[in-house]
């Protein structure tokens, strides 16, 4: 398959993830949609690595995976902290900062 097909799939997955981030209100699902967008970037990186015939893009894809795992850890910790303080798990309800 030509790389363009992979890029089209990557673009569609990225758009689905962006739609989820914009529309959904549960922060858990928003984190999942962030994962979707990062994975779309990964697919494009690996596709370009295949296009050039070397492994440079795959190294970037691995780094993106590590960043995604760290981001998930921090985000899920925040959600658990919200839950323990009995705050609503809804991004529309979280409007104010308290010290």
């Amino acid at each position: 398959m030509a790389i363009g097909w992979y890029l089209a799939v990557s673009a569609l997955i990225f758009c689905v993830g962006a739609a989820g981030v914009l529309v959904k209100r549960n922060p858990l699902v928003i984190l999942l949609c962030l994962e979707l967008m990062l994975n779309a970037g990964n697919l494009a990186l690996v596709g370009f690595a295949r296009m050039w015939g070397n492994g440079d893009g795959q190294v970037f894809a691995l780094i993106v995976m590590v960043v995604a795992a760290c981001e998930v850890t921090v985000g899920l910790g925040l959600i658990v902290a919200l839950h323990r303080r009995r705050l609503p798990i809804d991004v529309d309800e979280m409007r104010e900062l308290r010290g």
Binding site: Y6, N42, V46, G47, A49, R50, A61, L62, M65
Partner: peptide, 11 residues
């Protein structure tokens, strides 16, 4: 599976 098709086995 897509990564395997792109021959990125480790990824």
């Amino acid at each position: 599976a897509l990564f395997l098709l792109l021959r990125a086995q480790f990824v």
